[in-house]
Structures are given as C-alpha cells and as structure tokens.
Design a protein around this nucleic acid. Structure first.
Lengths: 218, 218
DNA sequence: ATAGATATTCTTGTATACAAGATTGTTGAC
DNA sequence: GTCAACAATCTTGTATACAAGAATATCTAT
C-alpha cells in the first residue's frame, strides 16, 4: 500500500480534533505541526487543505486554518441531512436490494444483538456501522453511497457518544429490525420513514446531551 | 478581495474540462500546467487536489491526476441524488419559507417567463439557477443548502445543454409554477414530489440526449 | 525478431528558500 | 494614559531544489 504522508497526516490531524487536543477555533500552525510530525510544511499544508474541504477546518486567506467544531445548530442540520440520505438509501434499497444483502443485514443485526446482550457498546458501534454501510451499498447508487459514507464519517464522533445513553442501544436494535422488515417486504416508504426516524432520533439525543452538558458547565 | 492563485487555477482547470480541452482520462501534467499558467508547480498541485475532492479528477499515488468525466450511469446516479436534495429542500421549505422568499420566487418565475417568451435560454438558465438557490436557502438548513449548491454546481454543464431541447423550457416553467404553488400552500409532500420530478426529468432528458449522441456517432 | 533485464528519463512527492501580507510590539504625540 | 503610526517579526503563499518511484528506452540473449 502506497500512501502519501500528506494523507496520513490528514487522518492524524482528524484524530487530534476528535480527541480534543485541538479544539474549536484553534489555529493550525503549519510549522509547529510539521515539526510535530517530523515532516516539512508541504505535506502538512496539503493535509490541512484536505480537511478544509470536509469542513473540519476553515481557511482564511493569508491568516491560516482554524479548527471548526460545529455548534448545536449546525450539528442538528447535519443530522437532518444524514437522516434524509439514509431515508433515500432506504427507499431505493427497498426496490433494489438483493437477497444476499438482506441475509447479511440479518446476520449483522444478530451480532448487534449479541453486543447488546454483552453490553459492549464498542462492538455494537462497529456492527451498527456495517449495518448502515450495507444499506448505502444496497441503494444501488454508487454516488449516493459515497456521499452517505462521507457524512456518516463526519458525524462519527458525535454519533458515538450517545450510544452510551441508557436504553439507546436497545431502542436502536428494535429500529434496525423494523428497517430490515420494511426492506424485506419491499416497502419503500416504510423503509425510508424508519431510517429517517432512526437517524433523526440520534440528532435529537445528541441535542439533549449537549443541553445537559451546557447546564452542567454553568 | 484576496484570492490565492491556487483557487484561481482550480476554476481555470474546471473551465478547461468543461470546454473539452481536457477530456476524460487525460493526465494533468503539473509541469505543463504550471508553465501554461505561468506559476510554479505548488499552486497547480493544490488546485488539482482541490478538484480531486470534488470528483472532477481522480488521483493515483505516484502516477498523477486524471480527468474523470462521469459516464451515463454515474450521471444518472448524480441526478438521482440531486433530485433527492431538491425534494428535501422543498419539503423543509414548505414548512419554513418566508413570505418574502415566496414573493421573490414569484418574481424570479416572472423573469423566467419573460426569458421563455424571448426565447432566451441563457437568461432562462440564470433565473432558473436563482430559483433553485432560493429554495435551497428556504430550507432553513444551511448545511443542506451548501451540499445542494455543491452538487448543483457539479451538474451545471450537463443541465445546461438540455435547456435547448424543444419544449423543455416551457415544461420547466410549468413545473416551477407548480412548485411555488405547493410551497405557498405549505404542502410539504407535494413540494417534495414536484421538485423531485422536476430534477429527475432533467436526468432522463439528459439520458436521451446521450443516447442520441451515441447513435449519431456510430 | 522478440522477450526479458537493465539503465535512463520523467514525474510525482517532499524539503527548503524566498516573497509578501498580517500580527505584534514599540515609540511618540496629544 | 491612550491612541496612532511605524517597525520588527511571524506566518502564509509561492518558487525552486532534491529524493524516490514509475514509465520508457536500450541492450542482450535466445
């Protein structure tokens, strides 16, 4: 596998943002980062520009790049769009999904159930991700699949925290079963609605989480 | 306005692709392009990487960047997603749009009608673009608006050609009126369906166009 | 003459050097 | 003491230099 160091640095910078070492508004100093990663400014710049296109950082000409953590409003907007992406995938998948993919979805859900029984959120998260990617793929629209994956990835850190909310895993599991049922029946509208709700509720949960955090912080 | 030359080069490269000077599969030679634009390789590289994130070119490590013109299948996929974006904007806008925006939509449509009467596709195209951007904006979801604009822009060259098809402008006009009516009534489902159809038909028209071109070429 | 191995050239990826605008600190006037 | 103007410094943006892998041409053996 040939990888450009710029790409590696991009993912490492992502991690720094996710772990909170770099937080909202921080300036990304090319020289400091270059020293830190033991490379020159060039790949660091390329990495920063790549992150800028994903929205993780914003660039101001001649001033630099700054970490951009979405606030509550922007996050809700993103979850709203994610819900629509998934709904669309679901509607198309209901018409186009293969038996093999349906079987795979069932298998994934069984592993989700096992993770739930074992009270293992990390494992649940992993299988949950596989579940959604399978649905994107089953939409039969490669472009849609890519776009959905992109946003899914962007929302990853925000989706992850709320799996630890009491009762969320169980509820999520039930929604998964319902989604597969709709897909199996080929009911496009129901599949779309189920997926929209499944994702939208994540946005709402996150909103509550944020509100609580703020209340505590005061 | 401070603009980085890399950004200017990115848009110039886009133009080269749109005009056909650079076509599918062509390799983007950094040195040649640098000479052509009278700059060094650095800003050219940055421009190429920016285009890579939009999908206009694909990059292969250590091999270079190649122009990627979507084929018929990929184009249909993109129009399908665009249709969903617009449908979502419409559904949300039906609930959130302001009276001022509604009035503006009517005004834009009147100008569209004038362009139609004058048989001026370029003017129609301009106002049509404004029409759609107004709806994105009226969705009340800034993130959705940005994503919709992005894809809209990407599809621009393909959407433009088919306005010249006989009768398309008139049909499009009628659809516009229907969309505004649905928005005015606050009928979310109808607005969504109308917009989905309005965009999806563009994809279909384009498909026919492609098929005809191929038939002629033989 | 053709196929394979090797050498050469070319292109990308990275490091360094230079240019220009932005930020910050200092000095001086009021 | 405060504000403004200017200077020094710092950071980004661009150009150039170097390193390494890929493509191509050449040479040899059969």
């Amino acid at each position: 596998m040939t990888e450009r160091s710029a790409d590696k640095i991009a993912t490492e910078l992502e991690q720094l943002v996710f772990t909170g070492e770099l937080s909202d508004g921080d300036r990304l100093d090319e020289i400091k980062l270059a020293k830190r990663f033991g490379v020159s400014r060039t790949p660091v710049r390329e990495a920063i520009q790549k992150l800028a296109t994903t929205g993780l950082v914003t660039q101001e000409p001649r001033r630099g790049a700054f970490v951009h953590q979405p606030g509550p409003v922007e996050l809700m907007e993103m979850f709203e769009v994610m819900a629509e992406f998934e709904a669309t995938c679901g509607r198309l998948a209901a018409l186009r999904i293969s038996d093999a993919a349906l079987a795979e979805l069932d298998a994934v859900n069984d592993r989700c159930q096992a993770a739930l029984d074992a009270e293992n959120p990390d494992e649940y998260y992993l299988e949950n991700e596989r579940f959604h990617h399978l649905i994107y793929e089953s939409s039969g629209n490669g472009f849609l699949e890519q776009e959905a994956r992109r946003l899914h990835r962007r929302l990853k850190p925000y989706r992850r925290v709320q799996l630890h909310l009491r009762g969320r895993m169980k509820q999520s599991m039930a929604e998964h079963r319902d989604i597969v049922a709709a897909l199996t029946e080929g009911d496009a509208d129901r599949a779309a609605a189920a997926l929209r709700g499944h994702v939208a509720i994540q946005g709402e949960k996150f909103h509550h989480l944020m509100a609580n955090l703020k209340a505590v912080a005061k």
